[in-house]
Design a protein around this nucleic acid. Structure first.
Length: 279
DNA sequence: AGTGCGGCCTGTCCGC
DNA sequence: TGCGGACAGGCCGCAC
């Protein structure tokens, strides 16, 4: 399901309800996730939530120990929504849903539930600062940060023959760009998704960086993209699907030139593009 | 080292 | 109405 805008929407949705609240209990109803939910998540019990933030598509809930609240990163919960995960804020007595895996009960009575039908998500505890976690250590820059720029992409792409779309979706290169937004950004930038990453000029990488930022920021503004089942923590859908230029629009006219949008599988993922506008 | 692919899961939809 | 197969927004780990 979720790419960066959906994770960001989720973060913004849960933050007001969780910030500075004490965690009273954690209930694991089904530990079967990409990483099995272990007993260690209980370490968060009794601690207060000092900060909620995001790195790539990981949601990080910092719960510093009560005896030393200034050490914000000393332990916290790490959540990844995988393909089908979602978080929702609800009352403790609200009915459980199929595939509710973990539940966080706060002292103020609010409840956070993690639901994930396909179980590709993660809900885990990490003792050390989150950036030292093996899954976060090797990640590339944030797409909305300064380190993601034309010269950087151009340099990283040197000599690579992989399709530029796969390159853009490689989390060691840049994080947060998934299958929807890769197609969208490449269309906006006028770059053919199959073009070898090493054969894209610096100028066009500058354009691609701007396009990626624009697409992601607009999607965040619209509350993410709801194609099938994404909802924010308040159960509201995202509205960016209305703005999609090529994704899932095979056969329909390109909004720029009117040619038919094509669909093609690249790296086992459906890819949408306009052969006329993208070279 | 870069590249491509299988696999993890369930739910939904489509064609027969 | 049932059934098999394809497909779905992520990402790791492995073989070449």
């Amino acid at each position: 399901m979720p790419e960066l805008p959906e994770v960001e929407t989720t973060l913004r949705g849960i933050t007001p309800a969780l910030l500075n609240q004490r965690i009273a209990a954690i209930t694991v109803r089904n530990p079967a996730l990409r990483i099995p939910v272990g007993e260690s998540v209980r370490k968060a019990c009794g601690r207060s939530i000092a900060r909620l933030h995001r790195r790539a598509k990981y949601l990080l809930i910092d719960t510093p120990p009560a005896d030393n609240p200034s050490r914000e990163d000393d332990g916290g919960l790490m959540i990844h929504l995988g393909m089908s995960g979602s978080l929702r804020i609800c009352a403790p007595d609200s009915p459980l849903r199929r595939h509710d895996h973990v539940e966080l009960s706060l002292q103020n009575g609010v409840c956070l539930r993690f639901n994930d039908p396909r179980r590709f998500g993660i809900f885990t505890w990490w003792d050390a600062p989150s950036e030292t976690h093996p899954l976060l250590r090797e990640l590339g820059p944030e797409p909305l940060g300064k380190a993601f720029n034309g010269p950087y992409l151009h340099r990283r792409a040197r000599g690579l023959r992989v399709a530029v779309k796969n390159f853009l979706m490689d989390s060691r290169v840049v994080v947060g760009v998934g299958n929807i937004y890769a197609s969208e950004a490449l269309h906006l930038a006028g770059i053919h998704p199959v073009r070898a990453a090493g054969r894209v000029s610096l100028a066009r990488y500058e354009t691609l960086v701007a396009a990626t930022r624009e697409v992601l920021q607009e999607a965040i503004r619209q509350g993410g993209t709801t194609l099938r089942d994404f909802t924010a923590p308040d159960s509201q859908p995202g509205y960016f699907a209305q703005e999609l230029r090529v994704y899932e629009r095979a056969g329909e006219p390109c909004l720029r030139c009117g040619a038919q949008v094509r669909k093609r599988v690249i790296g086992q993922r459906s890819t949408y593009f306009c052969v006329n506008c993208q070279r």
